[in-house]
Each structure stands twice: as C-alpha cells, then as structure tokens.
Design a binder for these strands. Structure first.
Length: 545
DNA sequence: TCTGCCACGTC
DNA sequence: CGACGTGGCAG
C-alpha cells in the first residue's frame, strides 16, 4: 500500500510520487558529462553523480533508542516488517538522472547469538547465510528529482526466516505472500534471515542511466550503511525492552500499550485465566526482563550504539567497470584496515541526531543540517572502485559465493527475473563501508577494526561487478555471476519498475555480485580484505563472545 | 525455538 | 468495512 510515508517528506511533494517520471530526460547526462559535478575525486566520471549524494536516516533517534538496547527484528514465515522502518532522505542526486534505490540486509558478523541474563552473547558460529536478497524500491528506477522529493521508504520490506520460499512470499500464511507479489511485479520480496544472527541493513543507490547500465562498465552506485540500524533477527522478542519500545512506537502495536484501561481490558480477556494486577503488560514485562542495560555499552553481542559509529556513513561507490568488484566481503573478520569510515564516512549528524544519549562519535563534521530527521551519511567517496582489485577475491569469494548461492538459492535456480533481481547475492559487508576504496591494498583500510567483525562485503562489488558479466575476469566475477547471477539489469527494470521502462541496462543491478563472506573462513586474500571495506564499526557487536 | 491464532490497532 | 500489521501466548 501505499505508503506514503509519513509525511515528512522533505520537500515533499504532494503528488509525490508521481512520477517516475519521464524518462525522457535521463539521458542527457550520461555519464559524465554534464553533469556537472565533477567528479571530484578520483573517480572517474563514473561516479560522477554519486559523489555528492547524501543519505539521511529518517528517525534516527528512534533507531538509536533501539540500538542502545540491542535492536531485534521479528522474522516470521509470512514476513515481518521492520520497525523502526527504514526510511531515508536522499540529496545530491542529479534530478534528471535515473537511479535505482535498493536495500539489502547483510550479516553483521559470523556469529550466532543467544540472549541470556538480559544480554546478548555469542554462542557459536553463524550459519551460512543465505543468499541475500535485494529489495528494490518500488519506485525504481526513478529520477533523482523523484527520490529527493520526499522520503524514500523501505517500510514494506519484510524479513522472513522462510528459506524455502524463493519468491519471498509465503504461501503458508497466506496473507502476505500474495500481496507481495502482486504488488509490484514481484519486486518486493522478503529478505531471508536466520534467527539469532545479527544483520546490517544497507541502502544502495545505483545510477540507472544508460551509460551506467549495469552491464556497462561503469555502473555507478554507492552504498550507505547506518550502523544504528543493525539488528538481531529473532522469532520472538528476547529483550523486553525492545518489546516495549516497539509497542510504544509502532502504531500497529498500539493495542498493547498500557494505557490503563486498555490494559485492564485486555488483560482480562486474554488472560482471563490469569489474574493480573493491573499493570499493563508491558510494564510487567518490562520489569521482568528489563534489562536495564544489558547492552549498553558493551554488550557483547550487541552493538552498542555508543560505540558504534553509527554516525558514519559509509558508502561505497563503485563503479563497476570491469572487474571491479571489490569488495568481497570478507567475511566477517576483521579486517585490518578498514578505512571505511574514513573514507566514507563523513558524518554529520549530530545535530540532529543525538539521540540523546551518548553522543556517539561524531567525528565528522559535516552537518547537515537541514533536515532534521535525517541524518545523513555522506557518502561519497570518490573513489570508485576499481575493479581491479577484485581479482583476488576470487577464490575464496567464489567459493563462498557459490555455496551460498547454492544453498539458498536452491530454490530458484535460475532466477527468474524476480529472483534474480531481487535475490541475489548476499553480501556481506555490513558495515561497511565504504568500500570505496576498493582495492587498494591495505592502505585504505584504515578502519580499525575492532576485532573482528565483519567483513564486509561490498556491495559494491557486486554492483561493480556487475560486471558480472562484465568483468568476469576476476574470479569473482564468476562466482558472482553464478549466483547472482546474473541479474540482469533488465530484470530489475522490469520487475521492479515496470513502468519505467528502463533501458534495460541501466536498470539492472544485475551485476552485482555480492558475495558473501561470511561463512567463509576467512580465506580471503588480503586483497580481498582490502577491498572489502568493511568496517567494523561496532565494536560492541562484535563478537565477543 | 518456532508456529498459529488471537485481540486490537492502523490504514 | 476489510486488509493488514502488532505482540502475546499456547502449543
């Protein structure tokens, strides 16, 4: 349904949506050219437009509240929406250029968690992730003007633990599944996750111009990661504080709010059997579990916000030209360097942000300012990645990729459009960061790593990879290609945006290959690591078991 | 641990 | 009104 998101829209436009506009214009810019912005940095034109792109997380404060406690997202067979919803404000796009906005959720690390004693802790190694699925925003492809006009909401995305359903719709329950499908040509899908595993949502902005067609060599895209949106997937809430936050903030859970009256009523009904004091349930629970702050700071397993850098934004820009993919993802291990942040992050936030609590690092300066809610993370980095580097990853990555692919995908061998497009890869890098760097050898990775954690895969890679075809060269590519398959651009285009008619090429992200890193043993070569950008940002979450 | 069903809310 | 989104709870 529509969602209209909330109204905040930034600028809003009432009509909003409208458009998708015409495509007509898009072309003008073609790559570089015109657009003006010069690339700043290094990059080639590819990025051109990507450099100035900024993405602000909407309602960051709310996200931070959850994050501080240790965000949990329910996953069900039928698919459950995330709450808080992932909504962003995007600026810096070329109004006439078309872009595809998509989201994915990648493993934040390779651990399995358990919740005991009011806190999360690592219990073991993560299960191999399934192939990741991409959730392409229904408006894609659309012009920069369209995306910037109002908040871009990914609230319809659903998380599921149903590995069997390739399409993201679940037959079992019936409800949701179908709806999905029908809605947009199947674009929407549910993202499959494993319970008790930590994940990091990411948003990717892919230029859909002809020039950048996926297939083409230069697909420009950038990835933004908001560490504060990381969460642990669960089939039922573990931490009562989270339950409480959900109830208090999610309109659909209003029925569970303790307003006295209601509570009483409810209680009586539901629990007729039990008797209860008057306390609202929530309250009750609360107390019980409450953890006060299990996580806070450190919590082991979870991330703590504070530490995190949420603030950073990370981004990756990739270009895909050939080989580039870069980032493999490495798995979750810590990479040595991660610079991710640096590069990418620019952060700003604070102002807006603050959640009040800690201040997270706000290292960066920018601030944006204007918008309130959104915090943004800049992204851009100039860099494009070069694909080059990618080559290395290949092996490991490949394998991994394959594995994943196979496993999960099993269901869908070749994906049909849908699949492909939507599901595809999995990548890993959570935090990642900016991958921009790509290849570079280590240097780039400044990050620190906390220990370990993630690897990140980069989407970029995939995108860049796009080249899946394109750049076969790298070993990776292949793999990627395999699973990822080939997404073709078209696919995306079609499915997702029917209307749009995108030129095919552009549309698709196909190429992306993200690999997955996680499960893998760290085989990645150093290079890979570099590429990865991962950043691990959150120490807390890190593993520690 | 996960699933199904429920009441209750939003849209 | 009906479809759908929520968490609780029983199984």
């Amino acid at each position: 349904m529509a969602d209209q998101e909330e109204t905040f829209a930034i600028q809003n436009s009432p009509g909003g949506s409208d458009s998708r506009e015409l495509q007509s214009d898009n072309k003008p810019e073609k790559q570089n050219g015109t657009s003006g912005k010069s690339p700043s940095s290094q990059t080639t034109y590819i990025q051109q437009g990507m450099e100035g792109i900024k993405v602000y997380l909407h309602e960051r404060e709310l996200w931070m509240k959850f994050h501080e406690v240790g965000t949990e997202m329910i996953i069900t067979k039928a698919g459950r929406r995330m709450f808080p919803s992932f909504k962003v404000k995007v600026t810096g796009l070329n109004p006439k250029t078309k872009y595809i906005l998509l989201m994915d959720v990648v493993p934040a690390d390779d651990h399995r968690y358990k919740f005991a004693d009011n806190k999360w802790s690592v219990t073991g190694k993560a299960e191999p992730a399934m192939p990741g699925r991409l959730y392409v925003h229904p408006d894609s492809p659309a012009t920069g003007a369209h995306w910037m006009r109002q908040l871009v909401s990914f609230q319809k995305l659903k998380l599921t633990n149903n590995h069997l359903d390739p399409f993201g719709h679940d037959a079992s329950t019936g409800r949701s599944g179908q709806a999905f499908i029908s809605s947009h040509a199947g674009c929407e899908r549910q993202i499959i996750l494993n319970s008790m595993h930590k994940y990091q949502p990411r948003i990717h902005i892919v230029k859909a111009d002809e020039n950048n067609g996926f297939g083409s060599k230069n697909t420009a895209f950038c990835t933004h990661v908001f560490p504060e949106t990381a969460f642990i997937a669960v089939t039922s809430y573990q931490n009562h504080k989270i339950t409480q936050l959900k109830i208090e903030n999610n309109p659909f859970a209003k029925g569970f709010r303790g307003s006295d009256d209601m509570e009483l009523h409810r209680m009586s009904r539901m629990q007729s059997t039990k008797e209860y004091p008057v306390v609202p349930r929530s309250t009750v629970r609360h107390r019980v579990g409450s953890s006060h702050s299990p996580f806070n700071g450190e919590v082991q397993g979870m991330a703590t916000p504070s530490t995190m850098s949420s603030q950073y934004s990370q981004c990756e820009n990739g270009v895909s030209s050939t080989s580039q993919d870069m980032l493999p993802q490495s798995s979750s291990y810590p990479l040595p360097h991660e610079h991710g942040q640096e590069y990418c992050i620019k952060r700003k936030v604070d102002d807006d942000c603050h959640s009040g609590e800690h201040s997270y690092k706000k290292p960066y300066l920018e601030s944006s300012s204007s918008e309130e809610d959104h915090y943004y993370r800049p992204v851009g980095y100039p860099q494009s990645l070069s694909l080059t580097s990618a080559p290395y990853r290949s092996e490991s990555s490949q394998r991994q990729a394959c594995m994943y692919a196979s496993s999960s995908q099993g269901a869908e061998p070749v994906p049909s459009l849908e699949d492909i497009s939507c599901n595809t890869w999995a990548s890993v890098s959570p935090y990642g960061s900016c991958s921009v760097t790509t290849m570079q050898p280590m240097e780039r990775l400044p990050y620190q790593h906390f220990s370990a954690h993630f690897a990140s895969g980069s989407l970029v890679s995939r995108l860049g990879g796009v080249g899946g075809h394109a750049s076969p060269q790298l070993g990776e590519s292949h793999h990627t290609a395999m699973y990822q398959s080939s997404m073709t651009h078209q696919t995306l285009g079609r499915q997702c945006s029917p209307g749009a008619g995108i030129q095919s090429p552009t549309a698709g992200l196909q190429g992306n290959e993200y690999l997955y890193a996680h499960g893998i043993p760290r085989t990645l070569s150093p290079h890979q690591y570099h590429s990865v950008h991962s950043v691990s940002i959150m120490p807390e979450w890190s593993e520690n078991s």
